[in-house]
Amino acid sequence: MVVIEQEPEPEEKESPSSSSAKNPRGSSRVPEESEDGGGRGGSDDDSFEDALTQDQLNERALNQANDAKADGNKLFGAGQYDDALLQYERALQIASEVPSSEEVRSMCHANRAVCFLKLGRYNDAITECTKALELKPSYVKALLRRGEAHEKLEHYEEAIGDMKKIIEIDSSNDQARRIIMRLEPLAAEKREKMKEEMIGKLKDMGNSVLGRFGMSVDNFKAVKDPNTGSYSISFQR
C-alpha cells in the first residue's frame, strides 16, 4: 500500500537572546534567578519548546508519527517486513499521546497487520486489525485483512462475518460478496466435519460407559418420527 505523506513543516528556532548586553557597570549581564533558585538562562532548544503552544506540539508529534509511518511503508515496499513493523510501532508510540490521532494509529495497526500476513503470523494480524477497527469501526481494509487472516487459519465463519460487516458498510462491495460465496461451501464442509468428529467422540464416550455392561452404542438405534421430528431410541442386541 503506497501512502503519500506530507512533508513536515521545517522547525523554526527562536533567535537566541543577545549575550553581549552589558549592565550599567559594563560587566556581562548575569541571568536573573527564578523563584526556585534556578537561572532563567537555558538552551535554545528549551526556549523553543517553551514557546510552542500545545497545539503546535501536537502537530509536530503528528508529523513525526506520519514520517515514521512513511518510513514503514518504504520498508514494506522493499520486503523488509520486520523493520517496517518497528517503524509502525514507533509511529504508534509517538501518536499515542496526541489527541485526535485515531486516523494515523488505525492505519499503522492495519499496516502492521499486512506485515504479519506476509510473515505468516495470522493471529497477530487479527489482533492488529481488531485494534485498527476499535479506532475506526468502518475501516474496510482492516476488515478485509482480518478476514484474510481468519481464512488462513480456516476460521471460515469469522471470515464470512467480517465480509458481511463490509457489505453493511458498503453494499456495493463486490469483493466481499465474492469472498462470501467462495467461503460458504468451505464453512459448511468444516461444520459437517466438526459434527462428525463430535459424534465420534460421543460414541467413544458412550462405549466406554456401556462397555462395563457388555453393551455399546451400536445396540441403540435412533428412529426419527416424520410427523413430530422427534427421535425414539430402541435397544437391539
Rank of each mutant, 00 (worst) to 15 (best):
A70M: 06
G39E: 12
Q93V: 12
K74G: 05
G42H: 12
N111R: 01
K141D: 06
E134T: 02
A95C: 03
Y88N: 01
G211L: 05
D124H: 08
N63C: 09
D225Y: 02
D45Q: 04
A149K: 02
Q64K: 09
L75T: 03
S34R: 15
S34W: 00
P185Q: 07
V209I: 14
K201M: 11
L86T: 10
A222D: 06
E196N: 11
E89T: 15
I166W: 09
I160H: 00
L75N: 03
L144M: 14
D174R: 11
V3N: 08
Q175L: 14
G79L: 10
K195V: 03
K74L: 13
S34H: 03
R29Q: 10
L75C: 07
S20N: 06
K136N: 15
G206V: 11
N227K: 15
L117Q: 00
E32V: 15
M1W: 14
E14G: 01
M181Q: 15
R105F: 03
S216Q: 06
E14A: 07
S18F: 04
I126Q: 01
C108K: 02
V104E: 01
E128H: 13
E103P: 00
S17F: 11
E11F: 04
S19R: 14
E49S: 02
M1R: 12
S15Y: 03
K195C: 03
E157Q: 13
S18R: 11
V3E: 08
E157T: 13
K152M: 13
M107E: 12
A149E: 00
P31S: 07
L119N: 00
L75P: 07
L143N: 03
S216N: 13
L85E: 06
I169R: 01
A149Y: 04
L133G: 13
E192L: 12
S17A: 10
S28G: 06
G39L: 11
H155A: 14
G38P: 00
E14L: 15
D71N: 11
R146G: 06
E7H: 10
Y139V: 01
N207A: 10
A188T: 14
Q175R: 14
E189Y: 00
P16S: 10
D36W: 01
A142E: 02
E158K: 14
Y231M: 12
R191P: 05
Q54R: 08
H150Y: 15
K74F: 07
P16G: 01
A61G: 01
S47H: 02
R178M: 10
T228G: 08
K221Y: 13
S27K: 13
P31W: 04
S101Q: 05
P31F: 00
E157F: 04
R191M: 09
S47D: 14
F235I: 13
V98G: 04
T130W: 04
K164C: 10
D82W: 07
A132F: 13
G161P: 03
L133A: 06
I169E: 08
